[in-house]
Design a protein around this nucleic acid. Structure first.
Lengths: 196, 196
DNA sequence: TGACAACGATACCGATCGGTGTCATTTCGT
DNA sequence: ACGAAATGACACCGATCGGTATCGTTGTCA
């Protein structure tokens, strides 16, 4: 028995919403949000257009929900990656390896938050706001890690690491010839060192 | 006398092509390529749709030409930034300041190559190929600079710096509270140091 | 078992998409 | 001054866009 849409948790309404959002998220990530039409989501999910619009008032709202879902899943994985590590440095190393693996996957298409930000010019767009919050949260967490690692100017170093990570997210397969995890770890270690 | 479309160099045909491409490039960069319709380019440029399609067979070709234009202008500025600097380190510092300034501009909307790559899923898309070549060229130039600076593993360090730069390009205004040039310079200096 | 809520299906809306055909006008080289 | 070439204006194409209205069906809970 493959686990299809049936006997998932929640009411039927919640299941329909979750399934529609799940399929939409996959299509959005794989193809870009602007390239995916609502009709396509209907066909791929089997959820009627009427039902989708009952749960999400506009396509923009669906995109926003997509980014919020990605945000939750990202931090959930982040927490899982960080948990087993004993020291702040070990936590950062684990994050580097995690990102390195992720970025080299075959169907990796970049950070959804950055991709959507690239697609919408208006910085006030609800999806852009989600993306902005996501990146602010990343900087906040990295700042904490830097402080725990005894770094003086944690805010600045955290931003430098954040830029490095975002660059890796946007690397578009260029990291495939490298040991991406090791490359990121060595870079971060140098950034954490006090200046010579 | 403001310099309008008239008395620019080249034949009338070349002028029409250049003007259409210029206006299209501005609109593409400001709004994202998928958000801009051909009709909009016609209205903003005053060039007839027929004429545009005589110079660019498809919208995709126009987007490709846009990225090639951005590529040429980018390296032209890069060369101008690097030229006056005496040492390899000074050249890299100058690049950091240049990128730092660029990234903090009010209407800065990220790297056009990365933005377009985010909009098209197909890695074989002609525009994606231009973007890929652009980023490869960046890595090549940074590798040369690293070697000139006496770095051992220049290929790896150059990639680390490239990631940092791409992260800055994608920073979406988050570098505004910082001295972006100084932040990039300090990061690059640490990356250029041999490991402790 | 009955009533209400949410579902799916379908047809439809005006607007816009990328792209083409036609044809009169304008530029430009000789 | 003339002919070739490229221009601009405009009408038009089928397809698709995001979104809505209608209505019969299905699940759910009292």
């Amino acid at each position: 028995m493959t686990a299809t849409a049936a006997d998932q948790p929640g009411t039927r309404s919640q299941r329909a919403r979750a399934h529609a959002l799940g399929v939409a998220s996959r299509l959005f990530y794989e193809n870009g949000v602007r390239a995916v039409g609502m009709e396509q989501i209907v066909d791929a999910s089997g959820i009627a257009k009427t039902t989708i619009y009952r749960h999400f008032p506009t396509k923009d709202a669906l995109i926003e929900a997509f980014l919020e879902k990605e945000d939750r899943e990202f931090w959930s994985q982040w927490d899982a990656v960080v948990a087993p590590a004993a020291s702040p440095i070990a936590r950062i190393d684990a994050l580097c390896d995690w990102i390195g693996d992720r970025v080299r996957r075959d169907n990796y298409r970049g950070c959804p938050q950055l991709n959507v930000a690239a697609e919408f010019a208006d910085a006030g767009h609800p999806a852009r706001r989600v993306a902005r919050r996501h990146k602010d949260e990343m900087h906040r967490r990295l700042s904490d890690l830097c402080r725990q690692a005894g770094v003086d100017d944690a805010t600045i170093v955290a931003m430098q690491i954040a830029l490095l990570f975002d660059g890796a997210f946007a690397s578009d397969g260029r990291l495939k010839p490298f040991d991406a995890g090791a490359l990121l770890r060595s870079a971060v270690h140098r950034l954490l060192q006090p200046p010579a």
